[in-house]
Design a protein around this nucleic acid. Sequence first.
DNA 1: GATAAAAATGACTACTAGGTCATTTTATGT
DNA 2: ACATAAAATGACCTAGTAGTCATTTTTATC
Lengths: 217, 217
Amino acid sequence: MADGPTEITKASEAPRARRGPSPEKTAQTRRVIVDAALGEFLEKGYADTTMDGVAKRAGVAKGTPYRYFPAKEALFEAVVREKIAGAVIDADPANRRPDETASTFLRRTMLVSIREIERNGRAAIARLVLVEGARFPEMTDIYRRVMFEPLLNQIRTLAATARSTGELRRVELEKYPHLLIAPIWFAIIHNGLLDRDHPLDIGDLFEANLDLFFDAP
Amino acid sequence: MADGPTEITKASEAPRARRGPSPEKTAQTRRVIVDAALGEFLEKGYADTTMDGVAKRAGVAKGTPYRYFPAKEALFEAVVREKIAGAVIDADPANRRPDETASTFLRRTMLVSIREIERNGRAAIARLVLVEGARFPEMTDIYRRVMFEPLLNQIRTLAATARSTGELRRVELEKYPHLLIAPIWFAIIHNGLLDRDHPLDIGDLFEANLDLFFDAP
DNA sequence: GATAAAAATGACTACTAGGTCATTTTATGT
DNA sequence: ACATAAAATGACCTAGTAGTCATTTTTATC
């Protein structure tokens, strides 16, 4: 997937002696470049980020990133792919404790990750994927498969269960689980793209929304 | 604001005889260029749109757009500025009929414009503003002032009124009028950027959301 | 039809930035 | 120390595109 400059020694050959800098150093360089690239992409967007700028920020020469990524596009894809991974908001019903209400469960799982979403940079990545999505449909596909659809399905399942136990009276969540996450996305674009000067507290907004479905305590 | 190629005759001078093509023709050319530019910007985004491409699409020569707009940036700004204008979703309480419930009023005003939002291209413009917003903060400012804040204020006012009459039991709307429009924005980015193949019906989503605040009929 | 003023043209320039590669540096095994 | 192979370098090449402007075309007036 992501090519490094080091040839992988085939198991069939005799493991030839390795010369030159250690693989650890190489991996480190790669990491520095990816981190620098993320910073540039977040600050300037894809089009306004230059490979030279990335190299400068990483403290390497113009040509070095090209030893790890064949083109700017590949660098971008690698960056997003590697940074999306940890960005999952999880509400897997399997983790629900016995006798825990759906409402409490959602506060313990979703709400907690949501409250960190701006601080830990995941909101910024979401915005990056959104904004560059038209140019990189594959990127958006990954995002959807990894983050989006699983969460919607978890919410749908949870809603169905909560309805059957009588905890949830409203029917809307089963048809439109989107209604639970819409305020999160709204706040993400609001805070980063629409009104940076008056950021919404994403956690508070989400809680207010939760109260609409599950009556406030 | 938007310079045309024709000098404006000052009222103090004798109104000299006008030569060359009529102002109507000139205005028409300008319109053709703006429309072509909108098309290109929507399809390719700002960075990937070329002035030559705009000219070709408009059926004019490379240099012609520059007679109307000094630079690509100015063309983009003019395009967005002129297309934002009509894109207002309105729920001005002043238009509320006597004895009309808040719920009915919102269905008659907001819901109607929302149901057209994809068809009439306003969703696409919203996405354009979002996606290019980082590069053109001024553009986003206009959007916020013209579309965003007025609507939020209208909703807030409406919520306060509906609460005082007892029609609205939930308190959330007064603190977070955003909760009413979040699903609209969510659907706009969902349909255009996240999952083009499975578009949500924005009107239905909005109605389901409305039912959360005002009990379903 | 001649004239003049504005509009339109498109070859041209300048510049930016992606990508290459011969050369140099680094680090390891002998 | 020396040899060697990988990693890193940065001058260089090139494609593409924003913006210019001398020239040509259009069209209303005389």
